[in-house]
Structures are given as C-alpha cells and as structure tokens.
C-alpha cells in the first residue's frame, strides 16, 4: 500500500521536475536574443563591424605583445545601464623593447606610405565622391529633418556608415 503511494508520488514529482527543466526555454532564449540585438541597436555595431573592429585591434595590439590572434575576444556586454566593450586578449609572450620599437617603426613607415597613396588617390576619387553625395542627398530628402537630427546625436555616428 505504502509502496503504491511512494510510486505515485515519485511519478508526480518526476512530471513536475520535467516541466521545470524547460527553464532554459522560450523566456531565456527571448531574453538572450534581445540582449544581443539591443546592444547592436544601441551602438550601431553590426556583427560585421564587430569582426572588423576585432581584426583592427589584433593588428594594433600585436605591435606590443605577441598574442593568439584567433583567440582575441571582443564582446559587447551590458553593465548596469551602460554598454561595455569587453576585450579579452590571450597573451602568448611579452615582446622585448627592440621588437616593440621595430614593430612601431614598421607601422610608421606603412602609415606614411599609405598617406602618400591617399593624397594621390584623392584627386581621382573626388569626382566620384561628390556624385555619391548627391545621390545620398536625394534619398535622404524623404527622411524627416528631425530624424536626421536625432541620428546625429546618437553616440557613435560611425564613419563606417558611409
């Protein structure tokens, strides 16, 4: 008699346990997806831009430390009512002074080179640029002036937009 009851009891509890297991279900999925999407909305950073930023950071930081380039992690995280950019860099080895100086020098040289290229390129690209601008203006006319204003006020009107 007693056995039947314990049996029944276990079955019932088992049933409830099963339903409770679903805690990682709809609600959690919704919350997590929303957090990611809102962070992108708030910062105007799409996954593509994040990847680009990650690559640029790897390039920059490699001058100073030797690191696992694939393992550099860059994430947007909610910190209270602020969005934080979390960067985790697995350092393999510290570079010595010489190596750092060399890397810095190399990047200086590269910069100069690209600046030269830039200035020569500019003249040719200018005409294209202004044409593009005109096209932009036309499409923007449909937007309200207010909307543009608030857009400009947003935190990072990233140059990448253009």
């Amino acid at each position: 008699m007693n056995e039947i009851f314990t049996n029944l009891y276990n079955k019932v509890i088992g049933f409830f346990r099963q339903t409770e297991k679903q805690e990682t279900s709809a609600k959690d999925v919704a919350c997590n997806r929303l957090r990611v999407v809102l962070m992108q909305d708030r910062t105007n950073l799409t996954p593509e831009l994040m990847e680009r930023m990650r690559k640029e950071l790897v390039e920059l930081l490699s001058k100073y430390v030797e690191m696992d380039k694939e393992a550099l992690e860059l994430n947007l995280e909610q910190d209270g009512d602020q969005v934080a950019l979390m960067l985790s860099i697995p350092v393999i080895r510290a570079k010595d002074e010489e190596e750092i100086q060399k890397a810095l020098q190399e990047s200086e040289e590269e910069k100069e080179k690209s600046e030269e290229e830039d200035s020569s390129e500019k003249e040719t690209s200018e005409t294209v640029d202004s044409e593009e601008n005109n096209a932009n203006k036309d499409s923007e006319k449909e937007e309200s002036p207010q909307e543009k204003e608030t857009d400009a006020k947003e935190e990072n009107p990233s140059e990448d937009k253009k």
């Binding site: 679903q22 709809a26 609600k27 919704a30 919350c31 929303l34 809102l38 209270g80």
Partner: peptide, 18 residues
C-alpha cells in the same frame, strides 16, 4: 505564461531596458 517560462517576466523586461 510567465510562470511556465514561456514569456519574459516583468523583471526581465525591466532589467533589459533598465
């Protein structure tokens, strides 16, 4: 729906929107 974890709770929404 909140109880069965099928829907976001009040706390979830308040936290997400702070």
């Amino acid at each position: 729906l909140v109880k069965t974890n099928d829907m976001m709770s009040v706390d979830d929404v308040v936290e997400i929107l702070s």
